[in-house]
Computed example of a mutant assay.
Amino acid sequence: MTVLGQRALNRALLARQHLLERASLSATEMVGHLVGMQGQAPLAPYVALWTRLSAFRPEELARLVTGRDVVRGLLMRGTVHLVLADDARVLRPLVQRVVAAGYTGHFGRRVGGADLGEVAALGRKLLEERPRSRRQVQDAFAERWPEHDAEALSYAVAYLVPTAQVTPRGVWGETGPARLTTLDGWLGRPLAEDPSLEDVVRRYLRAFGPASVADVQAWSGLTKVRDVVEAMGLRTFRAESGEVLYDVEDGLLPGPDVPAPVRFLPEYDNVLLGHADRGRVLPPGRRVPLPPGNGASRGTLLVDGFYRADWRLHGTGLTVTPHGRLATGQRAEIVAEGGRLLEFLGAGEAEVRFGGI
């Protein structure tokens, strides 16, 4: 099998993520192509789309959010993702056991003797009545089960019941608390009864491949998918480590020396988190930062295709903090692209500065 080095895998990933060249696609098409976008920080997907699309405006995604064409909820790896409504119907049943296991892993010791079936049933009933915050659910549980840890039980609802975070949270220019309702109720349609893992794997590879079985599992959170992947008849390569990499037949494979422009990424972008082997983007020893916040105010920076700096928006401008020395040309490119980001964020009069090194 052909061996693909880290730079070749880097360029393949950037091409498929539309980070080598911005795409002339709609926000709907891009969200669907990416099989969802990290959404813990509610406004992060706006920056993620801006850096990938040639003519994106935040109002486009805001309309999709308010129109329920896209939805935010716990999905891959048990983390909050923004996905197309139709994809949410498929993905949540597919990863439900992963999401549920995440709850017992985090809160198992605090649950005690509570009947989680009853907890889920009351949680669903409460959310079907009206969208509620976790604290409102907690108060209801404390009244129903005063002998148990109501706070721990309140978290169970999002994990055990397929839910959606409702607007105005996640809408550009608006604010609101994190409130939940049932996913099928928010979408007005039932969830898929027999979702196809094979279809999701192919879509993942089209946006993230070539990738190993471990990569597929790291992205989705699922386990024991090797037999499924190996039976799909995919084309194969080999990583420098010797691991087999799987791919769709039409997956983009630009050369390792194709130039990669500077790209600003938001918090938690899946290009940094979508593989078990993150060396195709992260330099040795570098971890993905996981800052708190609402999004669209900080993130990471790709230089020559790799994570080489962090950025943060503040009152006086945008500060870029490199992890090492940058060439003069790279700094100039960062300033130019940072200026475009500031304009997108509505801070076009601010300046791009360098901090740290």
Rank of each mutant, 00 (worst) to 15 (best):
His275Leu: 11
Ala27Trp: 00
Arg135Met: 11
Gln17Asp: 13
Arg325Gln: 12
Asp199Pro: 00
Tyr268Ile: 09
Leu25Phe: 15
Arg206Gly: 11
Gly221Asp: 06
Gln330Cys: 06
Arg238Ser: 13
Val335Glu: 15
Arg353Phe: 09
Pro266His: 08
Ala207Gln: 04
Gly113Glu: 09
Gln6Ser: 13
Ser24Met: 13
Asp69Lys: 15
Arg340Phe: 06
Arg331Asn: 06
Val248Arg: 08
Arg331Trp: 05
Arg340Gly: 06
Thr328Gln: 14
Glu174Phe: 11
Arg110Leu: 10
Ala207Lys: 01
Ala44Thr: 12
Arg179Asp: 05
Thr182Ala: 01
Ala48Asp: 10
Arg11Trp: 13
Ala158Trp: 11
Arg97Asp: 10
Ala336Thr: 15
Val288His: 08
Ala350Glu: 12
Arg263Leu: 05
Arg63Ala: 15
Pro266Ile: 09
Ala347Pro: 08
Thr163Val: 14
Leu318Lys: 02
Arg203Val: 00
Gly36Gln: 09
Gly209Asp: 00
Ala114Trp: 05
Val90Ser: 12
Met1Ala: 12
Val281Trp: 10
Ala101Ser: 12
Pro261Phe: 09
Gly251Val: 10
Ala12Leu: 12
Gly251Trp: 02
Pro261Glu: 06
Glu21Gly: 15
Val201Glu: 03
Gly317Arg: 06
Gly329Gln: 06
Gly73Gln: 03
Asp257Glu: 13
His314Ala: 13
Lys224Asn: 12
Arg52Lys: 07
Val320Asn: 03
Gly305Phe: 07
Glu193Ser: 14
Thr66Ser: 15
Phe354Trp: 06
Val216Lys: 01
Thr223Met: 08
Leu302Arg: 03
Asp227Gly: 10
Leu234Trp: 04
Arg308Asp: 00
Arg124Asn: 00
Gly355His: 01
Thr104Met: 11
Arg353Trp: 06
Leu14Asp: 14
Ala101Gln: 09
Arg202Asn: 02
Ala100Met: 04
Leu127Phe: 01
Ala150Val: 07
Gly305Leu: 04
Gly221Ile: 02
Gly242Glu: 05
Ala12Cys: 15
Gly274Asp: 12
Pro93Met: 04
Thr182Gly: 09
Leu91Met: 13
Pro190Glu: 06
Ala152Lys: 05
Glu240Phe: 03
Asp304Gly: 12
Thr236Val: 09
Leu43Met: 13
Ser24Arg: 15
Trp172His: 07
Ala55Asn: 15
Gly355Leu: 05
Gly73Leu: 08
Val262Met: 01
Arg189Thr: 13
Ala8Thr: 13
Arg109Ser: 14
Asp257Ile: 09
Ala239Ile: 05
Ala239Tyr: 05
Leu205Ile: 05
Glu349Thr: 12
Ala211Tyr: 01
Arg203Ala: 14
Pro322Val: 00
Asp199Asn: 10
Arg52Asn: 09
Ala85Glu: 00
Gln40Leu: 10
Glu267Gln: 15
Leu222Ala: 04
Leu183Gln: 01
Tyr155Leu: 10
Ala347Gln: 11
Gly32Leu: 07
Leu282Ile: 07
Gly299His: 07
Phe208Arg: 09
Gly112Thr: 01
Ala142Lys: 08
Ala156Met: 08
Glu129His: 09
Pro162Trp: 02
